[in-house]
Design a protein around this nucleic acid. Structure first.
Lengths: 227, 227
DNA sequence: TCACACCTTAAATCAACCTTAAACACCGGG
DNA sequence: CCCGGTGTTTAAGGTTGATTTAAGGTGTGA
């Protein structure tokens, strides 16, 4: 899951980045509204966290521009103010949620989960497909023959595939989604991590596999199940 | 816009109904959790507002059941309590938003707008002709007797022909279009790939064929159909 | 029936993808 | 502060399947 964090106050930005990263979100931090807007337009984020008060363009402005472009990405607004008028303004302009500082990290994380929840993800924060389960809280991959805790990159790969089961996903998509636009390594990194992930899928006795489609991408599919 | 309101306290329910109705929402009010669940499953609502504390089944339970059925309708939870733990629980169970009583109607309405703001668009990415279809996302050629994933070059040939059904296309045109002007191989390559493609068309039971016109090119035509 | 245009097949080549291992970076404990 | 462990990235060689080449085949019109 990729999150764009737009927060000009450095200590807050750092703290949030640490919290989010520890929870296996891949975070890009920007420090003013204009940067935020351009990153949103260019990048492929699952969520944007916007401070209301920022240099150059405030959070409200950013949201307005984003929505004007028809982009429906979930936006969470942060502010020190707690007046209802501000909340109403933010939500009317297209923010999906609103959090007032100070807040607890548990609440932040819970709200992020709520905002990024999709049809494929269940209420108890686990993803299932075939005989495997991915626990998004503990990052554990569970199968009939054991459980393994996945490292961040492999977790994100598995998560993305489980959110799109049976869908063909190009390796560039995975690359952008998990390593971000500014990572300048080789696409090879995707293959390597998929390889590690496959080994772990085998180890827990999964009946699903990550199938490569040459020149096209990957799909997660269940063993004896031809659609 | 249809809203299901599940709130057992009569005065609150009345008040909410008035507010929502005034704002052009059509509201169905129910007064316990079981009722709420059966209405959600039966009805076609754009949003559900759920009180946490209700007779027979509380709001958390209702959400859990709804999500277990794979229903992704936006849910807003209402509660008198304001502890973070409750918020976390509610959001984790699948609610999309959370509002603590008492609240101002402006905030309620703003949050409803945020939750029901939707944008969904999906382009149909398949080409059809005769009894075959070509899925441009998955590179699959589908016919009555089966599906085959086409390799890139054959796919491009098929795609070009399907975009110009019945039109006479010279082999030079295909050559330039697919292999590019700087490719210095033989025109033979087109014949080879057309040959492979024809075999696959036959395999999926297609009623269309690629007809060669001596000294002119090719046309895609349907079996017994002279246009 | 000859030449030309096109077809088919199979083998050779090439690119994409996989796997492994080693290098590197980071972090918590001693 | 150093050390070992964990996680991430780079690099290199292997495998597989797509692409291209090449060579022989078939049909058709002059």
């Amino acid at each position: 899951m990729r999150i764009l964090l737009a927060e000009d106050e450095m200590s807050m930005s750092k703290a949030l980045t640490v919290i989010l990263t520890k929870n296996n979100y891949s975070v890009d931090a920007v420090f003013d509204g204009e940067e935020a807007l351009s990153y949103i337009l260019a990048g492929d984020y699952d969520l944007v966290i916007l401070d209301v008060m920022m240099p150059k363009m405030d959070g409200f402005e950013v949201v307005r521009h984003v929505r004007d472009k028809g982009i429906t990405i979930p936006v969470m607004m942060l502010t020190a103010k707690s007046q209802i008028d501000d909340k109403v303004e933010g939500l009317d302009l297209g923010a999906n949620d609103y959090l007032t500082k100070p807040f607890e990290s548990r609440e932040l994380l819970a709200r992020i989960r709520a905002l990024t929840r999709t049809a494929a993800s269940s209420a108890d924060n686990t993803l299932r497909y075939g005989n495997i389960t991915l626990d998004r809280a503990s990052f554990e991959l569970k199968g009939p023959e054991g459980n393994i805790r996945l490292p961040a990159k492999e977790f994100q790969l598995m998560e993305y595939l489980l959110l799109n089961p049976g869908v063909l996903v190009s390796s560039e998509k995975l690359f952008d989604k998990i390593w971000g636009l500014d990572f300048d390594g080789d696409i090879n990194i995707v293959w390597t991590n998929l390889s590690y992930l496959r080994r772990k899928l085998a180890k827990v006795g999964a009946d699903v596999k990550i199938k490569a489609v040459r020149n096209a991408g990957y799909t997660l599919e269940q063993d004896g199940a031809e659609r």
